[in-house]
């Protein structure tokens, strides 16, 4: 978990659905999988199993899937990992990348200052 987890786009979309509707039973998820993506039962179960193995969700003995980490925390983790990989963990470098190429708008600056203040 501390290394960050890679999610493919498809997995990501399904994970979003689970976060949206959690806690939710796997059979309900199967129905959603079929309706949205034309997925068979086994396919949806495979995806749930993989997401659970990656530590994002957990499935209890009644088949209810609940999140182990919230979506925001997960996305923060992904961003952290991105910065780690690309900018060798340096956040200022990451931000300066934005500054160099685009001018930050007033709102952007305000947002950043608020976040930093936090």
């Amino acid at each position: 978990m501390d290394q960050g987890i890679l999610l493919g786009e498809i997995e990501g979309r399904f994970a979003d659905i689970i976060w949206e509707k959690a806690p939710i039973s796997s059979s309900a998820l199967v129905k959603i999988g079929a309706a949205e993506f034309n997925w068979k039962r086994t396919t949806t179960h495979n995806v749930i199993r993989r997401l659970t193995a990656k530590g994002l969700f957990s499935r209890d003995e009644n088949g209810i899937v609940s999140p182990m980490i919230s979506k925001e925390d997960f996305q923060a983790l992904q961003s952290r990992r991105f910065v780690d990989i690309v900018f060798n963990g340096s956040l200022p470098m990451f931000v300066s990348g934005f500054v160099k190429n685009n001018t930050l708008s007033e709102d952007d600056v305000k947002q950043i200052l608020t976040l930093l203040g936090k």
């Binding site: 498809i10 034309n38 997925w39 086994t42 396919t43």
Partner: peptide, 15 residues
């Protein structure tokens, strides 16, 4: 390939 999503008649797949 069963884990794929259809978009504009194209199937997208992670794997």
């Amino acid at each position: 390939l069963s884990e794929s999503i259809s978009e504009d008649n194209i199937m997208l797949c992670d794997h």
